[in-house]
Amino acid sequence: MYFAILGKHPQISLAELQKIKPTFYPSSKKGIVIFETEIPEGLKLLGGSIKTGKVVAEKDLQTLLQEVKIIGIQEEAIGKHFKRTIGIRRFKTVKINHTDKEIKEKGKEIINLDNGKYGIVEQYQNIPLYESIDFEKPGRSMSMGMMPAKLTHILINIGIQATTIIQNEPITIYDPFCGSGTTNFLANILGYNTVGSDINITYAQKNLPWRQATPFYNQDTSIDFFTHDITKPIPNNISNGSIIITEGRLGPIITKRSNPDDVRKAQQQIQKLYTDFFTNIIKSDLFPTIICTIPRYIGYDNTHEQLLQTTINSLGYDRKSISEIYQREDQQVGRKICIVTKKGKK
């Protein structure tokens, strides 16, 4: 049995978790899920879960922890209890939603799941990977879309789970709004060939040599970029059956003080861009699965979503979405995650 501590957006974390086909069991702890899976190796590939690992009974902890020099625990009373009952050498209290470097590198973290069950943390979110992509790229600009690396990781896993491509066939990840290359660099380290295009690929091309020199680069997969305007028909140089993982333009910065007319104008621009995007992508008949984000304007009418739904349906595809909006507390524009597939498929 396994457990996962869900991220700040639990519904999105749960959607990604479907990649490992879990069977859930009741959990009394908010933000923690307990499950069985036949794909436990997939746990280390998740982006939306803060920590994952195995569920064990308290009676088994002494054997499992006998060589561990230090454990991390959320409650001091439980740490003292373990010292008395199973003879642990040393413990320190750690926060359940944070990664303690000492515990990760030199010890084991234990999660109290109640009813005599505990979780032993085996995987943590790959924060160094996300920070490298988000903050260390030599080529980036606020004028282009800047989808967070962690969200990109989650979208890739959702896309793999949703695809109609036979799983033993090679999968290529395509981002038609590649910007500085975030999607492509995440797809590469996760083991997928990847292609990116945009009106301007200067930043993506500048970042590629940097990426190849980092420890996060996977030499066994390919990364290619080409110039293309997504409002124009899709060229034929992309593998049939590729999965699209992307985020288009979020529009101008919107605040609580923004003029409603300016917001409506931004929504109209977004609707036009995404209509062209979906029309050209779907008519190319190259992509059975499209995972993308659509801007959600907090506190405003979002009629552009329904209009895009109508466009997608008229082209023979279905659109499902995750109800939870990916946003930060200080943001007025969030991200609605959409899963677009051919009708009659997943």
Rank of each mutant, 00 (worst) to 15 (best):
K108T: 06
H9D: 12
G7F: 05
P288C: 04
M144C: 11
Q331R: 06
K117M: 09
C338K: 09
P235L: 08
D220L: 12
I96P: 02
D276L: 10
G344V: 00
A213L: 12
V94R: 01
I173R: 01
N193P: 11
N240L: 10
N207E: 01
T183Q: 05
G299M: 02
L43Q: 06
D100M: 10
G251H: 12
P209V: 04
R211D: 08
C178K: 04
V55F: 02
D198I: 02
H304T: 08
S284M: 08
K59W: 06
P138R: 02
I245E: 01
I339E: 03
S141C: 14
D60C: 05
K343E: 09
Q66C: 07
P209F: 03
F185D: 04
P176D: 05
I290N: 01
T289S: 07
Y192A: 12
Q327E: 14
T293H: 02
P148N: 05
P26W: 05
I88T: 04
Q306W: 15
N126D: 14
H153Q: 06
E67Q: 14
G31E: 09
Y300Q: 03
I110M: 03
N115I: 03
G116N: 10
K21G: 13
E247S: 09
T163P: 06
I230A: 09
I281W: 02
A213H: 14
K345V: 12
L307S: 15
I201T: 08
E122V: 02
K19E: 14
G191F: 08
Q18R: 14
F278T: 01
L6M: 03
I73V: 05
L129F: 07
P26G: 12
L286A: 06
T293P: 04
S242D: 15
T163E: 06
Q332R: 14
T172L: 08
Y203D: 14
G53M: 00
I88L: 00
H9E: 10
L45V: 12
S13M: 06
I120P: 01
I339P: 01
M146I: 13
G79S: 09
Y317L: 02
D60I: 07
I32G: 06
I154D: 00
F177H: 01
Y25K: 12
G145A: 14
T194G: 04
G47Q: 06
Q267C: 09
T310I: 15
G47F: 01
D175H: 03
I160R: 12
N259T: 12
D114T: 13
T99S: 09
E58D: 02
I281Y: 01
I238N: 00
L286W: 09
G47D: 03
E122N: 01
L286N: 06
G241N: 06
G334N: 00
V56Y: 01
V94H: 02
R249N: 15
K21C: 14
Q205V: 05
I312T: 00
